[in-house]
């Protein structure tokens, strides 16, 4: 084991049960609200050139910090490739919700939805918001807020649907 392996959830033995921080809270979510917590997230230092690769998304946090989002299966490969860039595997720290509808998201954040991806408060919790095709968005945030934010999202969705 290398000295930072304890951060990487994909290195666990197959019998170890991975559990999403939103599993319970979104168990009965209406359609249009999904758990996307099983996403690879690498925090990369230094200049982010050349990070873009097929199947990854790069979000610049500052001049010398970026997040690279990727499929769960690709984390190991990317981690190895970016290992010399002060890269940390922070996949385990993020929970993600995919939701549909600008109105719903506008009831949770004052971020400019025309300027995504962006980082800012969503229901008072610092979050990364990305726009998918159509009217769908992904919101990533510290996993320890999972229950709270899932509850808020479901509540807001009920409000949007209310007459």
């Amino acid at each position: 084991m290398t000295h930072l392996d304890f951060l990487s959830p994909d290195l666990a033995a197959p019998e170890a049960a991975w559990r999403s921080p939103l599993e319970r809270a979104l168990a009965h979510a209406p359609s249009g609200i999904e758990d996307v917590s099983r996403t690879g997230v690498l925090e990369v230092r230094g200049d982010a050139d050349g990070l873009d690769a097929e199947g990854t998304e790069v979000v610049r946090l500052s001049d010398d910090r970026a997040l690279v989002l990727c499929d769960w299966e690709r984390v190991a490969e990317l981690r190895a490739r970016l290992g010399d860039r002060g890269t940390l595997d922070v996949s385990a720290g993020w929970a993600g919700i995919r939701l549909r509808g600008e109105t719903l998201l506008r009831r949770l954040t004052d971020l400019d939805l025309d300027a995504l991806p962006a980082v800012g408060p969503v229901a008072h919790v610092q979050a990364l918001v990305l726009r998918d095709e159509d009217d769908a968005f992904r919101v990533f945030f510290a996993q320890e807020y999972g229950d709270y934010l899932a509850e808020v999202v479901l509540d807001a969705a009920a409000g949007v649907d209310a007459p």
Binding site: A123, H124, A142, Q143, E144, G146, D147, Y148
Partner: peptide
Amino acid sequence: RPHEPAQRTSIHH
């Protein structure tokens, strides 16, 4: 709406 952020550990439940 009342929004009171709470943090919970992954062992909370």
